[in-house]
Design a protein around this nucleic acid. Structure first.
Lengths: 196, 196
DNA sequence: ATTTGGTGCTAACGTTAGTTAGTGTATTTT
DNA sequence: AAAATACACTAACTAACGTTAGCACCAAAT
Protein backbone atom coordinates (compact mmCIF):
# COMPACT_ATOMS: atom_id res chain seq x y z
CA UNK A 1 0.00 0.00 0.00
CA UNK A 2 2.86 2.40 0.64
CA UNK A 3 4.94 3.82 3.43
CA UNK A 4 3.71 5.41 6.59
CA UNK A 5 4.01 9.17 6.30
CA UNK A 6 6.04 10.91 8.98
CA UNK A 7 7.39 14.35 9.63
CA UNK A 8 10.51 15.26 11.54
CA UNK A 9 8.61 15.49 14.82
CA UNK A 10 7.01 12.08 14.79
CA UNK A 11 8.42 8.63 14.25
CA UNK A 12 6.33 6.04 12.46
CA UNK A 13 5.60 4.45 15.80
CA UNK A 14 4.19 7.71 17.10
CA UNK A 15 1.98 8.05 14.06
CA UNK A 16 0.60 4.58 14.73
CA UNK A 17 -0.01 5.36 18.40
CA UNK A 18 -1.85 8.55 17.55
CA UNK A 19 -4.14 6.81 15.07
CA UNK A 20 -4.64 3.96 17.52
CA UNK A 21 -5.82 6.45 20.13
CA UNK A 22 -8.46 7.75 17.75
CA UNK A 23 -9.56 4.26 16.82
CA UNK A 24 -9.64 2.99 20.41
CA UNK A 25 -11.69 6.00 21.40
CA UNK A 26 -14.24 5.36 18.69
CA UNK A 27 -14.60 1.60 18.88
CA UNK A 28 -13.17 0.70 22.25
CA UNK A 29 -9.92 -1.19 22.72
CA UNK A 30 -11.35 -4.69 22.45
CA UNK A 31 -13.58 -3.96 19.48
CA UNK A 32 -10.82 -2.23 17.52
CA UNK A 33 -8.85 -4.59 15.31
CA UNK A 34 -5.29 -4.37 14.10
CA UNK A 35 -6.49 -4.79 10.53
CA UNK A 36 -8.72 -1.77 10.95
CA UNK A 37 -5.86 0.23 12.42
CA UNK A 38 -3.64 -0.84 9.54
CA UNK A 39 -6.24 0.41 7.07
CA UNK A 40 -6.29 3.79 8.73
CA UNK A 41 -2.52 3.98 8.82
CA UNK A 42 -2.46 2.96 5.16
CA UNK A 43 -0.59 -0.31 5.43
CA UNK A 44 -1.14 -4.06 5.84
CA UNK A 45 -1.77 -5.36 9.34
CA UNK A 46 1.44 -7.34 9.53
CA UNK A 47 3.49 -4.27 8.71
CA UNK A 48 2.49 -2.60 11.94
CA UNK A 49 4.63 -5.13 13.75
CA UNK A 50 7.78 -3.65 12.27
CA UNK A 51 7.14 -0.71 14.58
CA UNK A 52 5.29 -2.03 17.61
CA UNK A 53 5.46 -5.17 19.69
CA UNK A 54 1.77 -5.78 20.21
CA UNK A 55 -1.69 -4.28 20.36
CA UNK A 56 -1.41 -3.96 24.10
CA UNK A 57 1.78 -1.94 23.76
CA UNK A 58 -0.29 0.68 21.96
CA UNK A 59 -2.67 0.84 24.88
CA UNK A 60 -0.06 1.27 27.52
CA UNK A 61 1.83 3.86 25.53
CA UNK A 62 -1.37 5.87 25.38
CA UNK A 63 -2.34 5.41 29.01
CA UNK A 64 1.05 6.21 30.47
CA UNK A 65 1.61 9.17 28.24
CA UNK A 66 -1.47 10.69 29.86
CA UNK A 67 -0.80 9.46 33.38
CA UNK A 68 2.74 10.80 33.37
CA UNK A 69 1.63 14.19 32.12
CA UNK A 70 -0.89 14.52 34.93
CA UNK A 71 1.60 13.27 37.50
CA UNK A 72 4.13 15.92 36.52
CA UNK A 73 1.58 18.66 36.55
CA UNK A 74 0.46 17.73 40.04
CA UNK A 75 4.04 18.16 41.21
CA UNK A 76 4.33 21.65 39.84
CA UNK A 77 1.02 22.66 41.40
CA UNK A 78 1.95 21.29 44.80
CA UNK A 79 5.16 23.33 44.67
CA UNK A 80 3.34 26.59 44.06
CA UNK A 81 2.48 29.00 46.86
CA UNK A 82 -1.13 29.98 46.40
CA UNK A 83 -4.47 29.26 48.03
CA UNK A 84 -6.02 25.80 47.89
CA UNK A 85 -8.88 27.12 45.80
CA UNK A 86 -6.42 28.50 43.28
CA UNK A 87 -4.56 25.20 43.15
CA UNK A 88 -7.79 23.34 42.55
CA UNK A 89 -8.75 25.75 39.84
CA UNK A 90 -5.41 25.20 38.12
CA UNK A 91 -5.79 21.46 38.25
CA UNK A 92 -9.32 21.64 36.89
CA UNK A 93 -8.27 23.89 34.04
CA UNK A 94 -5.44 21.53 33.21
CA UNK A 95 -7.87 18.63 33.04
CA UNK A 96 -10.32 20.60 30.94
CA UNK A 97 -7.59 21.61 28.50
CA UNK A 98 -6.48 17.99 28.34
CA UNK A 99 -10.00 16.87 27.50
CA UNK A 100 -10.30 19.52 24.81
CA UNK A 101 -6.85 19.36 23.21
CA UNK A 102 -5.75 15.75 23.65
CA UNK A 103 -9.19 14.24 23.64
CA UNK A 104 -8.43 10.92 22.03
CA UNK A 105 -5.67 9.77 24.30
CA UNK A 106 -7.21 11.20 27.45
CA UNK A 107 -10.48 9.49 26.69
CA UNK A 108 -8.76 6.16 26.05
CA UNK A 109 -6.70 6.48 29.20
CA UNK A 110 -9.89 7.20 31.16
CA UNK A 111 -12.13 4.49 29.76
CA UNK A 112 -9.95 1.71 28.45
CA UNK A 113 -7.21 1.38 31.06
CA UNK A 114 -8.85 -1.72 32.47
CA UNK A 115 -7.60 -3.66 29.45
CA UNK A 116 -3.99 -3.03 30.41
CA UNK A 117 -2.11 -6.15 31.39
CA UNK A 118 0.02 -6.54 34.46
CA UNK A 119 2.43 -5.13 35.43
CA UNK A 120 1.10 -2.10 33.57
CA UNK A 121 -2.35 -2.47 35.03
CA UNK A 122 -1.25 -2.38 38.67
CA UNK A 123 1.20 0.37 37.92
CA UNK A 124 -1.47 2.49 36.31
CA UNK A 125 -3.92 1.92 39.13
CA UNK A 126 -1.29 2.95 41.64
CA UNK A 127 -0.51 6.15 39.81
CA UNK A 128 -4.19 6.91 39.63
CA UNK A 129 -4.81 6.26 43.29
CA UNK A 130 -1.82 8.34 44.27
CA UNK A 131 -2.89 11.19 42.06
CA UNK A 132 -6.32 11.31 43.62
CA UNK A 133 -4.91 11.23 47.10
CA UNK A 134 -2.69 14.18 46.35
CA UNK A 135 -5.65 16.03 44.91
CA UNK A 136 -7.71 15.20 47.98
CA UNK A 137 -4.90 16.44 50.22
CA UNK A 138 -5.09 19.85 48.60
CA UNK A 139 -8.82 19.96 49.26
CA UNK A 140 -8.38 18.83 52.88
CA UNK A 141 -5.89 21.60 53.42
CA UNK A 142 -8.38 24.08 51.96
CA UNK A 143 -11.05 22.83 54.33
CA UNK A 144 -8.76 23.30 57.33
CA UNK A 145 -8.01 26.85 56.22
CA UNK A 146 -11.79 27.38 55.96
CA UNK A 147 -11.50 28.28 52.29
CA UNK A 148 -13.63 25.29 51.41
CA UNK A 149 -16.89 23.87 52.71
CA UNK A 150 -16.44 20.95 55.11
CA UNK A 151 -17.18 18.13 52.68
CA UNK A 152 -15.60 14.75 52.11
CA UNK A 153 -12.48 15.45 50.06
CA UNK A 154 -12.46 12.05 48.36
CA UNK A 155 -16.00 12.58 47.13
CA UNK A 156 -15.14 16.03 45.88
CA UNK A 157 -12.23 14.68 43.85
CA UNK A 158 -14.40 11.99 42.38
CA UNK A 159 -17.09 14.47 41.42
CA UNK A 160 -14.71 16.91 39.82
CA UNK A 161 -12.70 14.43 37.82
CA UNK A 162 -15.75 12.67 36.49
CA UNK A 163 -17.57 15.90 35.77
CA UNK A 164 -14.70 16.86 33.52
CA UNK A 165 -14.79 13.57 31.71
CA UNK A 166 -18.28 14.67 30.70
CA UNK A 167 -16.61 16.88 28.12
CA UNK A 168 -16.85 13.73 26.05
CA UNK A 169 -20.52 14.57 25.51
CA UNK A 170 -19.58 18.09 24.55
CA UNK A 171 -17.34 16.72 21.80
CA UNK A 172 -20.14 14.55 20.50
CA UNK A 173 -22.77 17.26 20.52
CA UNK A 174 -23.63 19.14 17.35
CA UNK A 175 -24.45 22.63 18.50
CA UNK A 176 -21.74 23.23 21.01
CA UNK A 177 -20.55 26.28 22.85
CA UNK A 178 -16.90 27.29 22.53
CA UNK A 179 -14.22 25.55 24.55
CA UNK A 180 -13.51 28.72 26.51
CA UNK A 181 -17.13 29.16 27.53
CA UNK A 182 -17.35 25.52 28.47
CA UNK A 183 -14.29 25.92 30.65
CA UNK A 184 -15.64 28.96 32.47
CA UNK A 185 -18.99 27.27 33.07
CA UNK A 186 -17.33 24.24 34.54
CA UNK A 187 -15.12 26.26 36.83
CA UNK A 188 -18.09 28.32 37.99
CA UNK A 189 -20.14 25.31 38.94
CA UNK A 190 -17.42 23.12 40.34
CA UNK A 191 -15.39 25.69 42.24
CA UNK A 192 -18.55 27.52 43.25
CA UNK A 193 -19.80 24.33 44.85
CA UNK A 194 -16.70 24.13 47.01
CA UNK A 195 -16.21 27.67 48.24
CA UNK A 196 -17.12 28.43 51.80
CA UNK B 1 -24.02 -28.96 34.63
CA UNK B 2 -27.55 -28.49 35.93
CA UNK B 3 -30.53 -26.23 35.68
CA UNK B 4 -30.59 -22.50 36.04
CA UNK B 5 -31.98 -21.62 39.44
CA UNK B 6 -34.97 -19.33 39.51
CA UNK B 7 -37.43 -18.07 42.05
CA UNK B 8 -41.02 -17.05 41.47
CA UNK B 9 -40.02 -13.44 40.76
CA UNK B 10 -37.46 -14.08 38.06
CA UNK B 11 -37.57 -16.13 34.91
CA UNK B 12 -34.46 -17.92 33.72
CA UNK B 13 -34.01 -15.20 31.14
CA UNK B 14 -33.97 -12.56 33.84
CA UNK B 15 -31.39 -14.48 35.79
CA UNK B 16 -29.17 -14.57 32.73
CA UNK B 17 -29.63 -10.85 32.10
CA UNK B 18 -28.73 -10.01 35.69
CA UNK B 19 -25.54 -12.07 35.57
CA UNK B 20 -24.73 -10.64 32.16
CA UNK B 21 -24.94 -7.14 33.60
CA UNK B 22 -22.40 -8.01 36.25
CA UNK B 23 -20.11 -9.62 33.73
CA UNK B 24 -20.40 -6.81 31.19
CA UNK B 25 -19.65 -4.32 33.92
CA UNK B 26 -16.50 -6.14 34.95
CA UNK B 27 -15.06 -7.07 31.57
CA UNK B 28 -16.81 -4.78 29.15
CA UNK B 29 -19.33 -5.99 26.59
CA UNK B 30 -16.89 -6.91 23.85
CA UNK B 31 -14.42 -8.63 26.15
CA UNK B 32 -17.08 -10.68 27.90
CA UNK B 33 -17.70 -14.03 26.25
CA UNK B 34 -20.81 -16.16 26.19
CA UNK B 35 -18.79 -19.10 27.47
CA UNK B 36 -17.76 -17.04 30.48
CA UNK B 37 -21.34 -15.98 31.09
CA UNK B 38 -22.47 -19.60 30.81
CA UNK B 39 -19.90 -20.59 33.44
CA UNK B 40 -21.27 -18.00 35.82
CA UNK B 41 -24.83 -19.06 35.16
CA UNK B 42 -23.78 -22.68 35.69
CA UNK B 43 -24.57 -24.05 32.26
CA UNK B 44 -22.96 -24.71 28.88
CA UNK B 45 -22.74 -21.79 26.45
CA UNK B 46 -25.14 -23.28 23.94
CA UNK B 47 -27.82 -23.68 26.59
CA UNK B 48 -28.11 -19.94 27.01
CA UNK B 49 -29.69 -19.80 23.58
CA UNK B 50 -32.74 -21.64 24.83
CA UNK B 51 -33.55 -18.42 26.70
CA UNK B 52 -32.11 -15.57 24.69
CA UNK B 53 -31.77 -14.78 21.03
CA UNK B 54 -28.26 -13.36 21.04
CA UNK B 55 -25.54 -11.68 23.05
CA UNK B 56 -26.68 -8.30 21.80
CA UNK B 57 -30.18 -8.95 23.09
CA UNK B 58 -28.69 -9.06 26.58
CA UNK B 59 -27.15 -5.67 26.07
CA UNK B 60 -30.27 -3.97 24.86
CA UNK B 61 -32.39 -5.53 27.58
CA UNK B 62 -30.00 -4.01 30.10
CA UNK B 63 -29.73 -0.62 28.46
CA UNK B 64 -33.43 -0.10 27.90
CA UNK B 65 -34.38 -1.31 31.31
CA UNK B 66 -32.34 1.57 32.67
CA UNK B 67 -33.31 4.11 30.04
CA UNK B 68 -37.01 3.46 30.53
CA UNK B 69 -36.76 3.79 34.28
CA UNK B 70 -35.11 7.18 34.00
CA UNK B 71 -37.57 8.30 31.35
CA UNK B 72 -40.52 7.51 33.59
CA UNK B 73 -38.98 9.20 36.56
CA UNK B 74 -38.41 12.37 34.58
CA UNK B 75 -42.11 12.45 33.76
CA UNK B 76 -43.16 12.27 37.37
CA UNK B 77 -40.72 15.01 38.34
CA UNK B 78 -41.87 17.32 35.59
CA UNK B 79 -45.44 16.87 36.82
CA UNK B 80 -44.63 17.95 40.37
CA UNK B 81 -45.15 21.47 41.61
CA UNK B 82 -42.00 22.51 43.39
CA UNK B 83 -39.02 24.78 42.77
CA UNK B 84 -36.49 24.00 40.05
CA UNK B 85 -33.80 23.45 42.65
CA UNK B 86 -35.99 20.88 44.36
CA UNK B 87 -36.67 19.12 41.09
CA UNK B 88 -32.99 18.97 40.31
CA UNK B 89 -32.26 17.62 43.74
CA UNK B 90 -34.84 14.89 43.24
CA UNK B 91 -33.36 13.91 39.92
CA UNK B 92 -29.85 13.83 41.34
CA UNK B 93 -30.92 11.68 44.25
CA UNK B 94 -32.65 9.31 41.88
CA UNK B 95 -29.47 8.98 39.86
CA UNK B 96 -27.37 8.48 42.97
CA UNK B 97 -29.71 5.79 44.26
CA UNK B 98 -29.57 4.14 40.87
CA UNK B 99 -25.79 4.11 40.92
CA UNK B 100 -25.76 2.64 44.40
CA UNK B 101 -28.58 0.11 44.18
CA UNK B 102 -28.60 -1.00 40.55
CA UNK B 103 -24.95 -0.43 39.90
CA UNK B 104 -24.29 -3.19 37.40
CA UNK B 105 -26.97 -2.38 34.91
CA UNK B 106 -26.66 1.37 35.27
CA UNK B 107 -22.94 1.15 34.71
CA UNK B 108 -23.37 -1.03 31.63
CA UNK B 109 -26.05 1.25 30.25
CA UNK B 110 -23.72 4.22 30.77
CA UNK B 111 -20.52 2.80 29.37
CA UNK B 112 -21.41 0.05 26.93
CA UNK B 113 -24.41 1.43 25.06
CA UNK B 114 -22.25 2.19 22.05
CA UNK B 115 -22.17 -1.52 21.25
CA UNK B 116 -25.91 -1.58 20.70
CA UNK B 117 -26.90 -2.29 17.12
CA UNK B 118 -29.40 -0.33 15.11
CA UNK B 119 -32.28 0.25 15.50
CA UNK B 120 -31.60 -0.02 19.22
CA UNK B 121 -28.58 2.24 19.04
CA UNK B 122 -30.39 5.18 17.45
CA UNK B 123 -33.33 4.65 19.71
CA UNK B 124 -31.17 4.72 22.79
CA UNK B 125 -29.32 7.82 21.67
CA UNK B 126 -32.60 9.58 21.07
CA UNK B 127 -33.92 8.73 24.49
CA UNK B 128 -30.69 9.94 26.02
CA UNK B 129 -30.69 13.20 24.11
CA UNK B 130 -34.30 13.83 24.97
CA UNK B 131 -33.71 13.10 28.62
CA UNK B 132 -30.89 15.60 28.82
CA UNK B 133 -32.91 18.25 27.08
CA UNK B 134 -35.71 17.84 29.57
CA UNK B 135 -33.23 18.07 32.41
CA UNK B 136 -31.69 21.19 30.87
CA UNK B 137 -35.15 22.72 30.52
CA UNK B 138 -35.68 22.43 34.26
CA UNK B 139 -32.39 24.21 34.85
CA UNK B 140 -33.20 26.94 32.33
CA UNK B 141 -36.46 27.55 34.08
CA UNK B 142 -34.62 27.82 37.40
CA UNK B 143 -32.26 30.36 35.90
CA UNK B 144 -35.14 32.49 34.67
CA UNK B 145 -36.69 32.39 38.11
CA UNK B 146 -33.29 33.49 39.51
CA UNK B 147 -33.08 30.41 41.68
CA UNK B 148 -30.01 29.32 39.79
CA UNK B 149 -26.81 31.03 38.68
CA UNK B 150 -26.83 32.10 35.03
CA UNK B 151 -24.77 29.24 33.61
CA UNK B 152 -25.09 27.16 30.47
CA UNK B 153 -27.78 24.59 31.27
CA UNK B 154 -26.40 21.97 28.90
CA UNK B 155 -23.02 22.14 30.59
CA UNK B 156 -24.61 21.87 33.99
CA UNK B 157 -26.48 18.71 32.97
CA UNK B 158 -23.33 17.20 31.60
CA UNK B 159 -21.38 17.97 34.76
CA UNK B 160 -24.01 16.59 37.08
CA UNK B 161 -24.69 13.38 35.21
CA UNK B 162 -21.04 12.57 34.80
CA UNK B 163 -20.20 13.52 38.35
CA UNK B 164 -22.69 10.94 39.51
CA UNK B 165 -21.22 8.28 37.30
CA UNK B 166 -18.10 8.81 39.41
CA UNK B 167 -19.79 6.69 42.05
CA UNK B 168 -18.18 3.90 40.11
CA UNK B 169 -14.92 4.83 41.84
CA UNK B 170 -16.66 4.80 45.18
CA UNK B 171 -17.74 1.21 44.53
CA UNK B 172 -14.20 0.22 43.70
CA UNK B 173 -12.62 1.91 46.70
CA UNK B 174 -11.74 -0.08 49.80
CA UNK B 175 -12.29 2.34 52.64
CA UNK B 176 -15.48 3.97 51.61
CA UNK B 177 -17.93 6.23 53.35
CA UNK B 178 -21.56 5.13 53.62
CA UNK B 179 -23.93 5.55 50.72
CA UNK B 180 -25.98 8.11 52.65
CA UNK B 181 -22.99 10.30 53.39
CA UNK B 182 -21.85 10.02 49.81
CA UNK B 183 -25.26 11.16 48.67
CA UNK B 184 -25.32 14.19 50.95
CA UNK B 185 -21.83 15.21 49.90
CA UNK B 186 -22.74 15.03 46.27
CA UNK B 187 -25.89 17.04 46.74
CA UNK B 188 -24.01 19.66 48.72
CA UNK B 189 -21.37 20.18 46.09
CA UNK B 190 -23.52 19.90 43.00
CA UNK B 191 -26.58 21.79 44.13
CA UNK B 192 -24.42 24.25 46.03
CA UNK B 193 -22.61 25.05 42.80
CA UNK B 194 -25.88 25.96 41.12
CA UNK B 195 -27.68 28.06 43.71
CA UNK B 196 -27.81 31.77 43.18
C1' DA C 1 -48.98 -43.63 31.88
C1' DT C 2 -48.13 -40.95 27.91
C1' DT C 3 -47.39 -36.89 25.67
C1' DT C 4 -45.48 -32.46 25.29
C1' DG C 5 -42.53 -28.62 25.93
C1' DG C 6 -38.80 -26.73 28.21
C1' DT C 7 -34.11 -27.21 29.10
C1' DG C 8 -29.58 -29.10 28.99
C1' DC C 9 -25.82 -31.43 26.55
C1' DT C 10 -21.98 -32.43 22.83
C1' DA C 11 -20.14 -31.32 18.57
C1' DA C 12 -19.26 -28.48 15.17
C1' DC C 13 -19.73 -24.49 11.90
C1' DG C 14 -17.81 -20.21 9.92
C1' DT C 15 -15.54 -15.91 11.13
C1' DT C 16 -12.42 -12.96 13.00
C1' DA C 17 -8.74 -12.03 15.99
C1' DG C 18 -3.56 -11.12 17.06
C1' DT C 19 0.59 -12.44 15.53
C1' DT C 20 4.74 -14.71 13.01
C1' DA C 21 7.65 -16.29 9.11
C1' DG C 22 9.70 -15.44 5.10
C1' DT C 23 10.62 -12.59 1.07
C1' DG C 24 11.30 -8.66 -1.71
C1' DT C 25 12.23 -3.75 -2.22
C1' DA C 26 13.20 0.79 -1.07
C1' DT C 27 16.21 3.82 1.58
C1' DT C 28 20.12 5.03 4.15
C1' DT C 29 24.96 4.35 5.34
C1' DT C 30 29.60 3.46 4.18
C1' DA D 1 28.59 1.72 -6.03
C1' DA D 2 28.02 -1.67 -2.51
C1' DA D 3 26.39 -3.14 1.85
C1' DA D 4 23.27 -2.80 5.50
C1' DT D 5 19.11 -1.55 7.39
C1' DA D 6 14.31 -0.35 7.54
C1' DC D 7 10.03 -1.35 6.00
C1' DA D 8 6.08 -3.40 3.49
C1' DC D 9 4.17 -7.37 1.44
C1' DT D 10 1.76 -12.27 1.10
C1' DA D 11 0.53 -16.23 3.42
C1' DA D 12 -0.53 -18.65 7.13
C1' DC D 13 -1.11 -20.24 12.07
C1' DT D 14 -3.54 -20.85 16.35
C1' DA D 15 -6.97 -19.40 19.43
C1' DA D 16 -11.23 -17.64 20.51
C1' DC D 17 -15.62 -16.05 19.31
C1' DG D 18 -21.01 -16.24 18.60
C1' DT D 19 -24.08 -19.33 17.16
C1' DT D 20 -26.62 -23.61 15.25
C1' DA D 21 -28.00 -28.54 14.82
C1' DG D 22 -29.38 -32.51 16.77
C1' DC D 23 -30.23 -35.37 20.47
C1' DA D 24 -31.34 -36.65 25.50
C1' DC D 25 -33.66 -35.84 29.54
C1' DC D 26 -36.81 -34.22 33.12
C1' DA D 27 -41.06 -31.88 34.65
C1' DA D 28 -45.72 -30.74 34.09
C1' DA D 29 -50.17 -31.48 31.66
C1' DT D 30 -53.35 -34.63 29.71
Amino acid sequence: MGRIKTDTNNSRKEVIIAKAATLFKEKGYKAASMRELADIVGVEAASLYNHIKSKSELLHEICFSVANRYGHFMETVEAETCSSIEKIEKILRFHIHGMINHFDEVYVSDREWKYLEDPYLSNFQNQRRTYRKRFAAIIESGIQKKEIKPIDATTAVLIMLHAISGIESWHRSKQRISGDVLEENMITILVGGLKN
